[in-house]
């Protein structure tokens, strides 16, 4: 068994939109030639702002979206090369927890229906009593009262619904779970509960997580490795949470994350410029217009993610 459970190899994904009836197509590159290994048994964090392509990345990982270019390989198999039936079987081993707990459960399903749906889909039959036991077991694993099984999602709080989403993801005993901002729509006290649950499940079940978030503080707490994304590309891959960052964008993210400590207030430096549109990518570094260290080279030549002496960073003028 290889140490890499999931591998992105030069993966790009375009979205096109028709511009009016007669207008031409506009193409937006949401993820841009991304190469990334997700190591088994670790938590790989992907952090970035809205529009950086992190949600597209999550969907590419599970082949919910097909890559426009490149390959996504799970356990060494290119997902694009699988037949639909083989892909459906493969999905037993890779699951996802979604950002919005409010719409991730069919409102016509009871909680038990939702948790048991994966078995139904994969043709695993249960008697009524077995289904009841099994649903109760997974709900308990996710820290929920099994008596909630009879309820409908509208009767649950956001945190409870997210736990149902986790129970459903666990049902088929997957190896990899992609967590797409699983706590972004929850209160902080519930967010911490969910993170604690996920950490506990990981150790108990030997899971691998791909954790997508906009919250650098949370990623630094929860993840073993951190991938920083900007406008569809990985700009830095930090091998550990305490590795010193080298990309100016990572520094901006760090400076923008407020700590719950009034003695350590951040000095926020005014940043000019906006995130460029993914429809009209600049030729050089996408961060250059907002970067204080940008040189003329940064506007002309696109930096590639190079493994330097320390760790991969895509910058012409990395920090030391």
């Amino acid at each position: 068994m290889s140490d890499t459970i999931l591998r992105f190899d030069g993966v790009s994904r375009d979205f096109s939109s028709q511009k009016g009836f007669f207008g031409g197509k506009r193409t937006m590159r949401a993820v841009d030639s991304l190469t990334l290994d997700v190591p088994r048994g670790k938590v790989t964090g992907v952090v970035g702002e809205s529009g950086c392509g992190k949600s597209t990345l999550a969907r590419l990982a599970l082949h919910l979206l097909k890559p426009t270019a490149g390959h996504v390989c799970f356990e060494g198999n290119d997902l694009a090369g699988l037949t639909p039936a083989a892909l459906r079987r493969q999905r037993r081993h890779m699951q996802m927890v979604f950002q919005d707990p409010y719409s991730s459960i069919n409102p016509r399903f009871t909680i038990r229906d939702a948790v048991m749906e994966p078995f139904q889909v994969h043709g695993v039959r249960h008697t009524r009593a077995e289904a009841k036991d099994k649903a109760a077991r997974f709900l308990e694993m996710a820290g929920l009262d099994p008596q909630l099984a009879e309820r409908y999602p509208q009767q649950l709080s956001g945190g409870q619904k997210q736990r149902v989403g986790i129970a459903r993801a666990l049902a088929l005993e997957p190896d990899l779970i992609v967590l797409d901002e699983p706590t972004a729509s929850l209160d902080v006290s519930i967010q911490a509960q969910i993170i604690a649950l996920l950490a506990d499940l990981k150790t108990r079940l030997g899971l691998t997580y791909l954790f997508i978030s906009h919250d650098l503080g949370l990623v630094r707490y929860f993840c073993d490795r951190i991938v920083v994304m900007y406008l569809g590309a990985a700009v830095e891959i930090l091998p550990s949470t305490d590795a010193p960052h080298r990309h100016p964008y990572t520094r901006t993210l760090m400076d923008s994350a407020f700590l719950p400590d009034p003695e350590r207030r951040k000095t926020v430096t005014a940043m000019t410029g906006e995130i460029p549109s993914a429809f009209e990518r600049p030729p050089g570094c996408a961060f250059a217009p907002r970067c204080s260290l940008a040189s003329s080279r940064c506007y002309a030549e696109k930096p590639v993610l190079l493994t330097t002496e320390r760790h991969p960073v895509a910058c012409h003028h990395p920090l030391d």
Partner: peptide, 13 residues
Amino acid sequence: IPQEGQAPGSLVG
């Protein structure tokens, strides 16, 4: 809220 350098597993909510 996770603090900088907070030990894994110490965040409970």
